[in-house]
Computed example of a mutant assay.
Amino acid sequence: MTENAAPGAHFVAVETGEWAGWSTWMPGDPYEDHVGPFYARRDERGVLCGFLPQAHHRNGSGAIHGGALMSFADFALFAIAGGAEQGVHGVTVTFNAEFLAAAHPGTLLTARGEVLRQGRSLIFVRGTMEQEDRAVFAFSATLKRVG
């Protein structure tokens, strides 16, 4: 299980730099800060998450490491579940991943998704990740609210 969004954590707007107009978790998640950083925002289609992978995110063949993609997807799941305005304090109970194509450093990765169903404690979410309008990764999960 992966914990996300410590109590009191929430999205804070980025006001300067290349990510101005996006939001990020505050206080940050130490692992996601190290692997990412990851961002989210709302647009006319719903929640959009962003990650700009760098050379240090590559695997031995030069593509973005699957673990980096899975970490970004886990962030996206909680952003989608919380509507990119509020944090969901919870854990990842199940996580399903399909690697569709290689992703490359230096080009924006985006993720979108939807909440399939929400109960009192469980949230079912799915999404896809794209790079340059090409699907590279599909994911789904069950999240459990805690606290």
Rank of each mutant, 00 (worst) to 15 (best):
S61L: 15
T2G: 02
L122H: 05
S61F: 15
V14I: 14
A97Q: 07
E15V: 13
E132L: 08
R134V: 13
G119M: 08
E18M: 13
V14Q: 08
D74G: 11
M129I: 12
G50Q: 02
H56G: 06
R42E: 06
G21N: 04
I64Y: 06
Y31G: 03
E130K: 09
G147S: 11
A5T: 07
F95M: 09
Y31W: 15
L69C: 11
T16H: 14
K144V: 06
R117N: 13
V93D: 09
Y39G: 00
P30F: 09
F72Y: 05
S71F: 09
L108P: 04
Q86V: 04
G60S: 14
L48F: 02
A73N: 07
V88C: 08
A76F: 04
R120E: 12
F124W: 11
A63G: 11
R58T: 15
G8L: 11
A20F: 04
A73P: 04
H104G: 06
S121F: 04
H89M: 12
H89T: 13
L143E: 01
H56E: 14
D29Q: 14
T128A: 12
F124M: 11
T2L: 13
V35D: 03
F51T: 02
F95C: 06
F137D: 00
L77R: 00
Q131C: 09
P53K: 03
A79G: 02
R134Y: 05
N4C: 12
L48Q: 05
W25R: 08
R120L: 07
I123S: 01
G147T: 11
A79T: 02
H56P: 01
R134N: 04
F137R: 00
A103D: 04
G67S: 09
A135F: 04
H10L: 06
A13C: 00
R42A: 02
I123P: 00
F51Y: 14
N59D: 13
A68W: 00
G67K: 01
R126T: 12
A102Y: 09
R58Q: 15
I64Q: 03
A63Q: 08
T2R: 13
R58A: 14
A97V: 13
F72R: 00
A141I: 03
P53M: 09
L108I: 08
G106A: 11
W22R: 02
F75R: 01
G67C: 11
